[in-house]
Computed example of a mutant assay.
Amino acid sequence: MTPPKIPISVLVVIHTAQGEVLLLERAGPDGQGSGLWQSVTGSLDALDEAPRAACIREVFEETGLVVGSADCPESALIDWQHSEEYEIFERWRHRYAPGVTRNTEHAFGLKLPRRLPIALAPREHVRYQWLPAAQAAPLCFSPSNARAIERLAGPAAT
């Protein structure tokens, strides 16, 4: 039996120096596209896992990008010093302990010099696309994800 998810997560907005944002389409229950687009996200694996460590793990698991490599230096992963608490979507509450309805999400940006090859985790995502931030934000199903992408033009992402 899988242990319940920890209601603390990370959001990593991967973007290029040219302002393109990487969006991933979640796989549906049938393994096909769900129409739900998002940035890299994931819950902490343990209460003592630091959010930054969770970002590095999730970026690798979901995209194949290695934070700390030549093309993706660790200094490119920026903690935006922003978190949001939100209500967990009803469809995913079964993954958490009974009675858990809220999650705290910590936002980070990963600024790449250019588009890099992406290797999707097939159980999680089926497609990806690079879009200008203004086009990417409205496609996100998560309001907190959309707001994070909208903040890209602000000083926190530089």
Score class of each variant (00 low, 15 high):
residue 47 L to Q: 14
residue 13 V to G: 10
residue 34 S to R: 07
residue 97 A to G: 09
residue 44 L to K: 03
residue 112 L to G: 01
residue 71 D to F: 09
residue 116 L to P: 12
residue 19 G to T: 02
residue 97 A to Y: 02
residue 48 D to L: 06
residue 7 P to I: 02
residue 52 R to M: 05
residue 9 S to V: 00
residue 58 E to F: 01
residue 57 R to H: 07
residue 34 S to M: 12
residue 28 G to V: 13
residue 42 G to N: 05
residue 66 V to K: 04
residue 70 A to Q: 11
residue 96 Y to S: 12
residue 51 P to Y: 08
residue 112 L to C: 03
residue 114 R to L: 08
residue 102 R to N: 10
residue 76 A to R: 09
residue 102 R to Q: 05
residue 25 E to Q: 15
residue 39 S to A: 12
residue 56 I to S: 14
residue 116 L to M: 04
residue 31 G to L: 06
residue 80 W to K: 06
residue 50 A to V: 05
residue 33 G to M: 15
residue 71 D to K: 04
residue 99 G to F: 08
residue 93 R to K: 13
residue 44 L to M: 07
residue 53 A to R: 14
residue 92 W to P: 03
residue 27 A to W: 06
residue 18 Q to V: 02
residue 113 P to K: 08
residue 81 Q to P: 01
residue 93 R to Q: 14
residue 59 V to A: 04
residue 20 E to W: 00
residue 112 L to P: 11
residue 96 Y to E: 13
residue 119 A to N: 06
residue 50 A to K: 14
residue 120 L to K: 02
residue 49 E to D: 05
residue 104 T to W: 05
residue 95 R to G: 00
residue 52 R to A: 08
residue 14 I to E: 00
residue 77 L to T: 04
residue 92 W to E: 13
residue 50 A to I: 02
residue 70 A to V: 05
residue 19 G to S: 03
residue 104 T to Q: 14
residue 14 I to H: 00
residue 58 E to N: 09
residue 49 E to W: 01
residue 56 I to C: 09
residue 71 D to W: 04
residue 32 Q to V: 03
